[in-house]
Design a protein around this nucleic acid. Structure first.
Length: 716
DNA sequence: GTCAGCCAAATTTTT
DNA sequence: TTTGGCTGAC
């Protein structure tokens, strides 16, 4: 596409943003205002006019949005050479290249959240504190410190006992990370920010390479990310940021809404463009959402408007209990589907994951397909981590977390006693655990244990010889030689997932190798450690989406339900001391509301079960902030009008004894599946079946006549 | 090495 | 209520 074509079909403000050439640009983009369109067009336009693609850097927060953005930019004809990536992967790559200046080993491994927890536990042991009392505090505060670019020493200068204690844990944790040659997610940002600050040479290199930078979702940046952006853009000032302060919902993770609010101040010649026309929602939805967000006081004024239809009013539903609320919502969705809507047009949002339970139960009864957008990432699965552990040892033998995981996975007779002896030896010698494994003869082990360790040591050596080859081969070898493959294959009838996931990992590596022929195993590991699972989601089946409000950001659905509008839930915190937090909760609700295109329903229950106890709930203040004339209140509580609620029918058929979790079934249309869970509710039995394509489908057993039980042998 | 049983903890979680 | 982690018995 040539430059003129890139400017086609743009609104006036979009055009302004796209064609702005030099200097800082702030794009304040309201929900649903075509922000991505503006940013991708601009990236392509820059590459076509004032600069070359490889001099442009576009940064996002998630892999998903990076991939989407890249795809769209490539489709606009701007070439593959533009760097479109997440903050974290930019950091990982840059630190890999400039590891020497950063004082890092070249083969550092990236430590994920679960590993991080283990390491913090070790740090607690090392400073001899009762783990239970400090674990949670240490986890959040160390992360916060790193995000704010604070070292352990700086933290120790703080006054309180708590700070000093956490600083000790932090220091121990840093030591352990260094011993493992590991960097956690926060380190990636922190270390690059510090490197850019301290090394003029590296800073100039990056600034020269990336002459134009674009940052999406700028309201979610933390102090380290702010520094990185600033240090790259300081000289050329070609920095464009987009975002919406009203959608800042991650302050609890260190995001600083102040970054976007003070952008014009930080970059004095900023041109500010506002995208205020909304293309997503009806007038009713938009004005309800606008009225709500207006209640935030320290807010940068912004007025969203739309040319869309008025639409139906936003509805507020009152129910007696959480489960009745769920039942109502699901019943309504079922009837709309019966009238011709597709399941994928619906989404239900809630504040906490625990709230999905009631909804799931209601879905069981209704038989409507649903899908929960959960956080269990592909790369966080046990079998995947087991494999990655071997690969990590291959590139970084100091990676003790990986070693401890791999040493007896699959079981090879190396028990706690043996491991402790090895650890003891390592400690005495001041060497990494890996060295102890290699010097198994000196650790005072029993003959039996020594043999086990010996073959493990040999395995590691064999694998390490492959470390310089392709990632694909490394994985294949690691999986088969470690015995993991045998384990997965053996259990495939009981649980086919590990085998499937292992194979998927191999194909992912193969694909990566094809796209990056030069890439080493280390490159692939860097890439894989930073990946979530959204890219690998299998089988886009028709289903209603269930997710937390946080997970909803960036998505849109024709029909949206937001449940649990109660004090203590949404907003979760409240009170004069916590104005900022309350405002963030309001933004969270705002984000949820603005996902809706046509129909928006919010609900609350009079009684809510919280941790086993049923408590009287107070309706959320947010509901009272919605404009009266745009909103229809529907009271379905006992004192309300709904006396004709359909009671569940009695159980027709009870085959519970014939069915069990894990039973294989065949469906004429969906193929072979497996019973994932079963339950009884209101005297009826329901089963939840997952099929080969990843689709999950609930059935009420008496209506599940299409399901046929099959035996393992039958499908080989 | 595995498993039942007990206790404690329970927002959100882009990487 | 549910879940995960840890402990102690086989």
């Amino acid at each position: 596409m040539n430059a003129d074509e890139l400017l086609r079909d743009l609104t006036e403000p979009q055009l302004e943003a796209v064609t702005h050439a030099e200097g800082p640009l702030l794009l304040l983009a309201g929900a649903g205002s075509g922000k991505t369109r503006a940013i991708t067009r601009r990236a392509a336009y820059l590459a076509a006019t004032v600069t070359r693609p490889w001099n442009v850097l576009a940064i996002t927060f998630t892999n998903k949005s990076a991939n989407e953005m890249k795809e769209r930019i490539v489709a606009l004809g701007a070439g593959e050479d533009m760097t479109v990536c997440t903050f974290h992967s930019l950091c990982a790559r840059s630190l890999r290249i400039h590891h020497e200046s950063a004082g890092l080993p070249p083969n550092f491994t990236i430590v994920d959240q679960a590993d991080r927890r283990q390491l913090i536990k070790k740090a607690l042991e090392r400073v001899q504190l009762a783990a239970e009392n400090w674990r949670a505090a240490a986890e959040t505060r160390i992360s916060r410190a790193k995000n704010a670019m604070q070292s352990p020493a700086e933290m120790a200068e703080a006054a309180g006992y708590d700070d000093k204690t956490v600083a000790r844990i932090y220091a121990a944790y840093e030591d352990i990370l260094a011993e493992n040659a590991g960097l956690d997610f926060d380190d990636l940002l922190f270390k690059l920010a510090r490197l850019l600050q301290e090394s003029e040479e590296v800073r100039c290199k990056l600034a020269d390479r990336f002459r134009y930078i674009l940052i999406d979702e700028y309201q979610d940046t933390n102090a380290a990310q702010y520094r990185i952006a600033h240090l790259i853009a300081r000289d050329h000032q070609n920095i464009m940021v987009t975002g919406d302060p009203d959608q800042s919902i991650y302050s609890w993770r260190g995001a600083d809404i102040g970054n976007i609010l003070s952008f014009e101040h930080d970059y004095p010649n900023t041109k500010t463009v506002r995208l205020e026309q909304n293309y997503r929602s009806t007038k009713s939805i938009l004005s309800a959402a606008s009225a709500l967000i207006d209640a935030n006081v320290g807010r940068k004024k912004k007025t969203l408007w739309t040319e869309n239809a008025e639409g139906m009013p936003v509805r507020v539903l009152t129910c007696d209990t959480g489960s009745l609320e769920a039942e109502r919502v699901v019943t309504e969705i079922a009837s709309l589907i019966a009238q011709g809507r597709r399941p994928s047009e619906f989404a239900i949002f809630y504040r906490t994951n625990a709230m999905s339970r009631a909804l799931e139960e209601a879905f069981f009864v209704s038989g409507v397909c649903y899908r929960i957008a959960r956080g269990t990432a592909f790369y966080a699965r046990k079998e995947i981590k087991d494999i990655l552990a071997y690969l990590r040892i291959m590139v970084n033998s100091a990676d003790t977390v990986a070693l401890e995981r791999a040493i007896n996975t699959p079981p090879r007779g190396i028990g706690k006693t043996t491991i402790n002896k090895l650890k003891q030896f390592a400690e005495q010698q001041g060497c990494p655990l890996y060295a102890a494994v290699m010097r198994f003869g000196e650790c005072g082990l029993s003959k039996r244990a020594e043999n086990c360790i010996k073959s493990f040591a040999e395995l590691l050596q064999t694998l390490q010889a492959l470390a310089d080859g392709s990632a694909r081969d490394a994985i294949e070898q690691a999986v088969s030689r470690s015995g993991l493959m045998a384990q997965f294959t053996e259990q495939k009838d009981v649980n086919p997932e590990p085998l499937a996931n292992a194979n998927e990992l191999v194909s992912a590596a193969e694909e990566f190798g094809r796209a990056n022929p030069e890439a080493t195993l280390l490159d692939w590991l860097t890439f894989a450690s930073l990946l979530g699972d959204e890219d690998l989601s299998r089988g886009q089946s028709e289903a209603v989406s269930l997710m937390t409000l946080h997970a909803a950001k960036g998505l849109e659905f024709p029909c949206v339900y937001i449940v649990g509008l109660e004090e203590g839930l949404l907003p979760m915190v409240r009170g004069a001391t916590d104005i900022d937090q309350e405002e963030e909760e309001r933004r969270l609700f705002f984000v949820g509301m603005t996902r809706a295109m046509e129909r928006l329903t919010v609900s609350h229950a009079v009684w809510r079960m919280v941790r086993g106890a049923t408590l009287r709930a107070t309706r959320s203040v947010f509901l009272d902030e919605l404009p009266g004339d745009e909103v229809e209140w529907v009271d379905r509580s006992r004192n309300g009008a709904d006396r004709n609620r359909r009671e569940p029918q009695a159980c027709v058929r009870d085959d519970l004894h014939l069915w069990a979790v894990g039973t294989l079934v065949r469906h004429p249309e969906y193929g072979i599946g497996q019973v994932m869970s079963m339950g009884r509710r209101a005297g009826r039995t329901h089963v939840n079946v997952r099929f080969e394509d990843g689709r999950e489908q609930p059935w009420l057993l008496e209506f599940a006549s299409d399901l046929e039980r099959v035996d393992f042998d039958e499908i080989g």
